[in-house]
Design a protein around this nucleic acid. Structure first.
Ligand SMILES: [Mn+2]
Ligand SMILES: [Mn+2]
Ligand SMILES: [Zn+2]
Ligand SMILES: [Zn+2]
Lengths: 131, 131
DNA sequence: GATCTTCATGACAATCATTCTCATTTAGAC
DNA sequence: GTCTAAATGAGAATGATTGTCATGAAGATC
């Protein structure tokens, strides 16, 4: 069951949001993307930006993190499993591989009898431009 | 600079919160702890529970995670650095060691020129009782 | 033990990211 | 072109968390 896959309609708004998030390699929140679009003259609504980014993340097009203060931030994502090193001050993001981690996850699952283990692994730091 | 360490006053409320969080090995939110205390007859205020748990976490007495829906949850913490395997449905938590991770963090920091790297690593799954 | 200063508390309001509502628009199927 | 379900947007609602500020009480000092 690859389950419930709905193909969304191709609306002007969806294209605008997709372009806006693709235009920047840093993680950005729905509000930030919305602001950016409005400044460019778009009339897209805030709720639409929220809904579109959520849908894109659910379909795997975007990656999600939670900022240290709890907001959800999105970024266009390289396909395949990986993690992120995010600059606390400017949001600049590097995708990183953690080759050992998947094996570790399986080992931990077995050891403690947990099923459907998911891991959330993010690194936060200060990038060289912001130091 | 081990910096600004203030010793909080020993109030009845602080003791009640400390006992309540220590009484349960699962992560719990401020609201949950507050409910629990009120049901036991305590008159402690919600804001006080928020403040007390925050302070205890800042001083290292408690560990913090963000639940998948974004709330902050606390748990009495074993001293020393470690990570958690948390049951999505009941909150039961196992503390785990990730021996290789600190070295990996340092390697990544060097590789990408990031400073003050912090890692957030949590595992979520379904425990055997909840399966 | 009484006094005093300062920090802690609690009721409530305020904040603010996110979600909901619902009337209106429109993509895409026919 | 018609039709219908899905998408949109304006605004209201939600809900966790934080701020405000008058009152209470640790605990230092006498
Ligand atoms: Mn990514
Ligand atoms: Mn812990
Ligand atoms: Zn930076
Ligand atoms: Zn469980």
């Amino acid at each position: 069951m690859t389950s419930t896959e709905r193909t969304p309609r191709n609306t002007r708004q969806r294209a605008e949001v997709r372009d806006a998030v693709a235009a920047n390699p840093a993680f950005a929140t729905s509000q930030t993307i919305h602001d950016r679009l409005r400044h460019e003259g778009s009339k897209v609504g805030l709720a639409t930006v929220y809904r579109t980014l959520q849908a894109m993340a659910a379909s795997g097009e975007l990656d999600t993190i939670r900022t240290p203060d709890g907001q959800i931030a999105y970024r266009t994502c390289t396909p395949g499993h990986h993690h992120h090193l995010v600059c606390r001050s400017c949001g600049r993001t590097v995708e990183i591989d953690l080759p050992g981690l998947e094996a570790t996850t399986r080992r931990i699952a077995g050891e403690y009898g947990f099923a459907e283990i998911d891991h959330e692994v993010e690194f936060f730091g200060t990038c060289s431009s912001c130091a």
